[in-house]
Design a binder for these strands. Structure first.
Lengths: 336, 336
DNA sequence: TCTATAAATGAAAACGCTTGCATGATTTTT
DNA sequence: AAAAATCATGCAAGCGTTTTCATTTATAGA
């Protein structure tokens, strides 16, 4: 334990605890000369502020809790970066937990943040079953903000229009003449966005009079490996797809690998479209056509909005839907 | 604020505060029946434990602070994952800060963690100028562990042999007949490993009687873009390299892009070797030959060792050098 | 010069928990 | 059945800050 406490600094400087506290955190309330004396004493004593005691006493906290499914997927890591940037600029601290796409872990993380009395909570998606707990935390003055999707109009979010984004991507594929289009979705846990995307997928199909084939939609974790395996399964179908829409770029890259391993070409034989426009996507060979998603901006905005609300003591009010945009590169081509 | 405190739970349950505290955190010390009564009261009151108060009082903390340069580079994100896994299993919480490769930010993060009285600190590299502060924190009973490199034998680390790993990679390239080999290094701030790697690079050169050309070594942030630009610069040299060793895979991917844009082929015209074997590397086209580095294991081990030490109240004692291994894939070929 | 105002400081009560010590209630031992 | 040991519980003193309120001191107004 840091030997020196405020009390000892006070003794050393010949002032009271209160003065030390003020001199250190609100120097303008204290005579210049005293501030100097206190700082001097603190320095020679090697005093280190105890943030726990401070927070407990002031019942304020400068910590943001964030929950993401996994830091291994770039889009979430990028969210995190944005949040961290905001925290670092505004001198907040940042806590992180991964749900691993498991609702129970997600809930556990929420509860721990609640116990820690974080000043705010940011989540990249939320399992429907955990939404009510957002209220519980709000009752204790802990605002929450969910990324990527809206947990309902009563809550704060910075989302994208998952339905529409998917719709647009798929329509593009259809425009290219494809009609047998696989859909590699993400997990349906710890997030609603994937069900919205599936909804989008089905809607385009309907709107273009294309029959829905359940064999063409598969849900899995967002990893290269899962993408590869899912695509492989699609390729084994009696009537394989000529295009595939992936709900994220890792899945797309995995799919491309499976296609190559089957001695087929992208995009000549099969078109693939990704989602997110993760940093690798532009550098991949071939560069990936993808639905670009503002992951970093989302994180940054979230962090800033949250911190601003906290600092102003105002209720967080943020319901925003950001645009996503189809970025055409080289993995989609007209059906032969 | 969560209205109910331990005191009110005590009142409701008709016992003392101490009993509530014990019933909740050490149920075995309390009569079964009482535990039930307390739990019941806590539940109906919607009691939520206040971790700050708890930690302050017990002067224990279950938080690990981690500092990485950036979560945008996969190897660090993977470190983080390993640490988080350990935390989640052992019921610790995890705080994160990014140094952005800036020593000043790194120091700031260390100081904030000190103020927060985290139970332990894990850093992915450390700027030499900040090493002394490790001692300061240690004086307050906060153990530290640095990843990737050794900050000196007096400290804890889980590292790789940066010198040797580089040596091996470069030797492989030389074995393939290359002698004009560029070296794309990472930043020299917030980590020593890159200088060790450069040292390794020069050593092989020396050992094989190849002249060192400073124009062939470049240092930059680990991004695709920087890799591309660095390679582009190399390509503009009067006598361009026939191979390039990159200190991480993102740099390698950027380099490959630059090579392709110059209408050259990999590996036929230029060989490139990466570092880390980040998840994308095996899926890239062409699959990247790289020096594989145990990033996730490193994180996991670090987290576990740290938590174990903390829980046992024993001093952390961990000085470990993990193996790295050359993974030969398709981006290196004999010199034509 | 004397009061009115502002500025600087201090005393002390929180904040919500843990824990050492003491006490009373139960069991166990002999 | 008394003594010894064990179990359950309560009391109260912290943990290291912040902050309200009161007090003292300096500054200004008239």
């Amino acid at each position: 334990m840091s030997r020196a406490t405020i009390k000892e600094v006070a003794a050393r400087a010949g002032v009271s605890q209160s003065t030390v506290s003020r001199a250190l955190t609100a120097p303008r309330m204290v005579k210049q000369e005293t501030v100097l004396k206190v700082r001097e004493a603190a320095k020679t004593l090697g005093y280190v502020y105890n943030a726990m005691a401070g927070s407990l006493s002031s019942r304020r906290s400068d910590a943001l809790g964030v929950i993401i499914p996994s830091s291994a997927y770039s889009a979430f890591a990028i969210n995190l970066m944005g949040i961290q940037d905001a925290c670092s600029e505004r001198n907040f601290s940042c806590r992180i937990a991964a749900s691993q796409f498991q609702p129970a872990k997600e809930m556990l993380a929420m509860q721990r943040y609640h116990e820690q009395r974080v000043a705010g909570l940011i989540m990249a998606g939320i399992d429907p079953s955990n939404i009510p707990y957002l209220r519980t935390m709000a009752d204790d003055g802990i605002p929450a903000l969910v990324l990527w999707e809206s947990p309902g109009e009563a809550f704060n979010y910075i989302a994208i229009d998952n339905y529409q984004a998917t719709y647009d991507g798929l329509r593009y594929l259809i425009t290219l003449g494809h009609s047998r289009i696989a859909f590699l979705s993400g997990p349906y846990t710890c997030a609603q966005r994937n069900v919205e995307r599936v909804r989008g997928y089905r809607a385009v199909l309907d709107d273009h009079g294309i029959a829905f084939d359940p064999a063409l939609v598969r849900s899995q974790l967002p990893t290269f490996l899962h993408g590869k395996e899912a695509m492989r399964a699609c390729l084994r179908l009696p009537e394989p797809p000529t295009a595939v829409l992936c709900v994220n770029d890792y899945l797309a890259i995995g799919a491309i690998r499976a296609i190559h391993e089957a001695d087929l070409r992208v995009p000549e034989d099969i078109s693939v479209c990704g989602f997110d426009d993760v940093d690798i996507s532009a550098y991949f060979n071939p560069p990936i056509t993808t639905i670009k998603t503002p992951g970093q901006l989302m994180g940054r905005m979230a962090g800033e909005a949250m911190i601003t609300a906290i600092e102003n003591g105002a209720p967080l009010q943020m319901q925003y839907t950001l645009d996503s945009e189809l970025v055409i590169r080289s993995t989609c081509a007209p059906r032969r």
